[in-house]
Amino acid sequence: MKITVDMSLCESHGQCVFAAPEVFSFDEDDHLVHDAEPDDALRAKVVDAVAVCPVRAIGIEG
């Protein structure tokens, strides 16, 4: 599973961080950082993160 985040859309609302904290987090400057190839066991949480992103910036491949 590969994750893409369109940083031109991301507004750091943080809904993905709540849905899948193992994959998404904020750095000290409020920028979103993410694990681009998380374990497949986290798929359900990532799908959730995609659904709750207010600007639909997150995509899943594979």
């Binding site: 750091s12 943080g14 961080v17 987090s25 904020f26 750095d27 409020d30």
Partner: peptide, 12 residues
């Protein structure tokens, strides 16, 4: 505000 990383712990 300007402290996004800290919200996660509160939410948990």
């Amino acid at each position: 505000a300007g402290r996004a990383a800290r919200v996660t712990a509160y939410r948990s």
